[in-house]
Design a protein around this nucleic acid. Structure first.
Length: 721
DNA sequence: AGCACGCCGACT
DNA sequence: GTCGGCGTGCTC
C-alpha cells in the first residue's frame, strides 16, 4: 500500500508531498501520524497526509521504516485546513501543518484507546469537601479552604496554603475530600439591553456562514459573544473566541472563565510549551467547551465546532506579515467553510473591504447602535499643532491638553497619554550635514533611549552608543529630534510633579508580571497619568479614566500603504474609547498637524459611516481593494544585486505568463534593509475575474524561482485584503 | 540544506 | 598509493 507523506526538512524547497510504501495495514495508520522515513541518505520524521493512494510520482516508492510511539491525531478538518493553507499561501505541506501541530510537533502526546495523554499529565480534577474531619492542623487548613472556596485543583490548594502535598493526599485516601464533577457555579449571563437583544435575535434569523457584528466601542459586543457561545455549548458544540494578543487581558479572561468555569481554555503567547501541550490535549479530549485565544487559537483541535468569533477583525496583527505567513481572518473563514461553522467578525471599525461586502449583502451585517447605559462617546477636542507652534508653544503638549490634564487631576481622575513612538527621541541627526544615525544591519534610523543612554534599532533591537560628533562630517551639532514616550514621561513628570506617572510600552512592559502590575496599579488608582503606545489601545477598561490625550494623531498616516487611512481611523477610535468607560463622561484631546485629513476628522466625530463613505470613494478612484485585487510580491536575500536581479526576472516571467490578463504592475521599489537582508518589491492590480488564472501563473513562476534560487532568496506573495 | 560521490593535486 | 579539498547532484 502507498501513503502520502510530508517530511520535516530544514530546506523549504523539499517541503512537498512524497509517496512511500508500507506493509502496515489501514488499521495501523491514520492521518497526521508521525512516521520514520528514509529520505535520500538521511532518516527523517514525516507525517501521513493520505492513506492508500496511487503512486503517481514517477519515482519508485521507498518503504517507511516505522511509526513513532507518541502520536498526534488531528481532527479531520484541521488536516483539510492544512492542505488548503498550503495551496493558498504557496507553502509546503509540512510548513503548513507545523502551524497546526502542538509544540515539538506533538512529541510526547500519546494516543491510547480513544483518549489522548500527555506524559506526566497533571491531575485536572477539582477536589471538594465530601465528609469527615481533618486529623491534624494541616488537614484542617485544607478542609477550611475547600469549604470556603469550593472545589479546587490540587495545585491551587498547594498554591494557597503553606503545606506539603501529603496532607492533601491523605485526605483523598481517607475519602474526606474527592474529585467533584460540577465545579464552581457559573455566573449567569447578563440581561441584554434592547439593542443587544435585537442583535442577538437577528443572528438567528438565518444561517449565514459569515456575520459582521459592527458596534461602537462600549456597545457590549463581548456580552453578545458570550450569549451566542452559551447557546452553542447548550447544543453540545464547541466555541472559539479569537482576540488580538493585547486584548487578551486578565479582565477578558476572568469574564469568560466566570461564565463557563473550568471548561474554558486560554491560549496566548506567554504559555510555555508544556502548558500549551496540556491545553491542546484537554481540547482534543473534549474537556473544553470554549477557547479564548490569540491568533494561533484558530487551530484549536476541537471537534464539533459550533461557532467561531474573531474579535477586532481589522487588526493588523491578524494579517500576513514577517512573522505570520498566513492571514488569521482568511484561515478562520476556511475553517468555517470546511466544517460549516458560523463565523462572526466583531469590530467597531471594520476593515473597509469587509464592510463593503457586508453592505452589498455578501455577508450578514448586524449593527449595535447604542452604547450600554446610553453612555455618550467621549467628547473630542481637535487641536491644530501648527497653530500651537505659531503662537509660540513648542512643547508636545498643547495648551488645551495641559489645562485639561490639570483639571482632570484636580478632580481625582486618571489620564492616559498616547504616543505611537517608543524611546526618548525618534532619531539623531546632524544639523550640519543632515546625516541621521542608522543601524548597522538595518537601513533604518535609530531611536535614542535615555534609560540605557544608547541608540536602539526598533527593527532588530541592536544598540550602540550615542556618538558625540557626526560620523560623516565630524560636526558637534548632532542632536536628537522627534519626541518618544520616554521624553513625554520626563516632560509630564516635570510639569505635574505631584502626579504619579507611569509609562507603558515594549521597553517597560516586556514581562507578563509588569503588564499585570501596571494594570492593577492603574485599576487601584496608584497611577494618575499613564503614558503609552499601541499597547494601551485595546481591551483595557479603567472606569476612572476621563481624559485621553493623543499627542500625535498623524504618526500612523505616514506609512505608505493604501490602508494608512483606515488604520489611523481605527487606532484613533480605539484610543479614544479608553476615555469615559465609567459613570463620568470622558474627554479626548487629539493633537495633529493634519486637521483636514478625513480619517482624523471623522475619527473626531466618531462616525465610521462618514469615514467609510469617503474612503470607499478613494479606493474606487485609485483601483484599490475591494474593487481590484492587490498582490504584493517581495523578494528578500543577503545580496542586494542578486535580489534585485531575481526580482526583475520574477517580474519578467510573470508578465510573460500572464500576457492575456489585464494586469497593472507597479515599478520595482527597494524596501529598507532589515537585519542585513535586502528586499525589493512590486505590486499587481488585477480584476477579480482574472484572479484564478493569475494564481496559477504566480504559483508556476514562484516554484520555478524557488528552485533557481535554491533557498538563497525568500519570496513573499501577499494577497492584500 | 546537507550529504555523498568523484575528480584532482599533494603528501607519506 | 591515499588523504582531503571542493564542485556537483540528488532527495519519493
Amino acid at each position: 500500500m502507498y501513503i502520502d507523506v510530508c517530511v520535516q526538512q530544514n530546506f523549504i524547497g523539499f517541503d512537498q508531498v512524497y509517496t512511500y510504501s508500507t506493509k502496515l495495514g489501514r488499521n495501523d495508520l491514520f492521518l497526521g501520524q508521525r512516521v520514520k522515513v528514509p529520505f535520500g541518505k538521511k532518516i527523517l520524521m514525516g507525517i501521513i497526509l493520505a492513506i492508500d493512494v496511487e503512486n503517481t510520482s514517477g519515482f519508485e516508492a521507498k518503504e517507511i521504516l516505522g511509526t513513532f510511539e507518541d502520536q498526534v491525531f488531528l481532527p479531520r478538518d484541521l488536516m483539510v485546513l492544512a492542505e488548503k493553507m498550503s495551496e493558498k499561501y504557496f507553502i509546503g505541506p509540512f510548513t503548513s501543518l507545523a502551524y497546526i501541530l502542538p509544540p515539538s510537533n506533538g512529541q510526547g502526546i500519546f494516543y491510547d484507546q480513544g483518549e489522548f495523554k500527555v506524559e506526566n499529565l497533571p491531575d485536572l480534577n477539582r477536589y471538594g469537601y465530601l465528609e469527615g474531619q481533618g486529623k491534624n492542623p494541616s488537614q484542617e487548613k485544607v478542609l477550611n479552604l475547600l469549604k470556603s472556596q469550593g472545589p479546587l485543583l490540587k495545585s491551587e490548594i498547594l498554591d494557597r496554603l503553606d503545606i506539603s502535598a501529603s496532607p492533601v493526599q491523605t485526605l483523598i485516601k481517607n475519602g474526606v475530600i474527592g474529585p467533584v464533577k460540577e465545579e464552581k457555579t457559573c455566573q449567569p449571563p447578563q440581561v441584554l439591553t434592547p439593542d443587544q437583544e435585537r442583535a442577538y435575535q437577528e443572528f438567528y434569523q438565518d444561517q449565514s456562514l459569515e456575520t459582521l457584528l459592527f458596534g461602537v466601542t462600549g456597545s457590549g459586543k463581548t456580552e453578545l459573544y458570550l450569549h451566542w457561545a452559551q447557546d452553542c455549548i447548550e447544543r453540545g458544540q464547541k466555541v472559539l473566541i479569537i482576540l488580538p494578543e493585547i486584548a487578551l487581558t486578565p479582565q477578558m479572561v476572568e469574564r469568560v472563565q466566570a461564565r463557563f468555569g473550568s471548561r474554558t481554555s486560554v491560549m496566548h503567547s506567554k504559555l510555555t510549551d508544556s502548558q500549551r501541550k496540556l491545553e491542546w490535549t484537554r481540547m482534543r479530549n473534549g474537556q473544553v467547551d470554549i477557547l479564548v485565544g490569540a491568533r494561533s487559537g484558530i487551530f484549536a483541535p476541537m471537534e464539533n465546532l459550533g461557532l467561531i468569533i474573531l474579535d477586532e477583525e481589522q487588526e493588523a496583527s491578524y494579517q500576513y506579515h514577517q512573522s505570520l505567513r498566513y492571514d488569521v481572518r482568511e484561515v478562520a473563514k476556511m475553517r468555517s467553510e470546511i466544517t460549516g461553522t458560523r463565523l462572526v467578525y466583531g469590530s467597531a471599525t471594520p476593515e473597509v473591504s469587509l464592510f463593503y461586502r457586508a453592505k452589498k449583502g455578501d455577508i450578514k451585517l448586524i449593527q449595535l447602535k447604542n452604547r450600554i447605559m446610553d453612555r455618550p462617546l467621549a467628547r473630542v477636542h481637535l487641536v491644530d499643532m501648527r497653530e500651537e507652534l505659531s503662537t509660540g508653544n513648542l512643547s508636545i503638549l498643547s495648551n488645551v491638553l495641559h489645562q485639561k490634564i490639570q483639571n482632570t487631576l484636580s478632580r481625582g481622575k486618571q489620564v492616559i497619554l498616547f504616543l505611537n513612538r517608543r524611546g526618548y527621541s525618534n532619531f539623531i541627526s546632524c544639523r550640519h550635514c543632515g546625516t541621521a544615525i542608522r543601524c548597522d544591519s538595518c537601513d533604518i534610523s535609530m531611536n535614542y533611549h535615555k534609560t540605557i543612554h544608547r541608540l536602539r534599532c526598533h527593527y532588530c533591537g541592536s544598540t550602540k552608543p550615542l556618538p558625540k560628533t557626526c560620523p560623516v562630517c565630524g560636526s558637534k551639532l548632532i542632536k536628537p529630534f522627534g519626541v518618544g514616550t520616554q521624553q513625554v514621561e520626563e516632560l509630564v513628570k516635570n510639569l505635574f510633579p505631584q502626579a504619579k506617572v507611569h509609562r507603558m510600552d515594549r521597553d517597560t512592559t516586556n514581562k507578563k508580571e509588569t503588564y499585570f502590575s501596571l494594570y492593577e496599579d492603574m485599576k487601584n488608582r496608584k497611577i494618575d497619568i499613564l503614558i503609552g503606545t499601541q499597547m494601551l489601545a485595546k481591551g483595557l477598561d479603567f472606569e476612572h479614566v476621563t481624559l485621553v490625550g493623543i499627542l500625535a494623531a498623524d504618526t500612523s498616516l505616514f506609512i505608505s500603504d493604501y490602508k494608512a487611512q483606515e488604520q489611523c481611523y481605527s487606532l484613533l477610535t480605539q484610543v479614544s474609547g479608553r476615555s469615559g468607560r465609567g459613570k463620568d463622561p470622558g474627554e479626548v484631546v487629539l493633537q495633529t498637524y493634519n486637521p483636514d485629513n478625513y480619517a482624523i476628522k471623522t475619527a473626531c466625530q466618531g462616525d465610521y459611516q462618514d469615514f467609510y463613505d469617503m474612503e470607499i470613494k478613494q479606493r474606487q478612484a485609485y483601483d484599490y481593494p475591494p474593487f481590484k485585487k492587490l498582490i504584493s510580491i517581495q523578494l528578500t536575500g543577503p545580496d542586494k544585486e542578486e535580489v534585485y536581479e531575481a526580482t526583475r526576472n520574477f517580474y519578467r516571467d510573470l508578465t510573460g505568463a500572464t500576457r492575456t490578463l489585464h494586469l497593472v504592475g507597479t515599478k520595482i521599489i527597494e524596501n529598507p534593509k532589515i537585519k542585513n537582508k535586502y528586499t525589493f518589491k512590486f505590486q499587481l492590480k488585477s480584476n477579480k475575474a482574472d484572479l484564478a488564472l493569475l494564481r496559477d501563473s504566480l504559483e508556476w513562476v514562484f516554484k520555478k524561482h524557488m528552485k533557481e534560487n535554491k533557498g538563497k532568496i525568500y519570496i513573499d506573495i501577499i494577497f492584500e485584503r
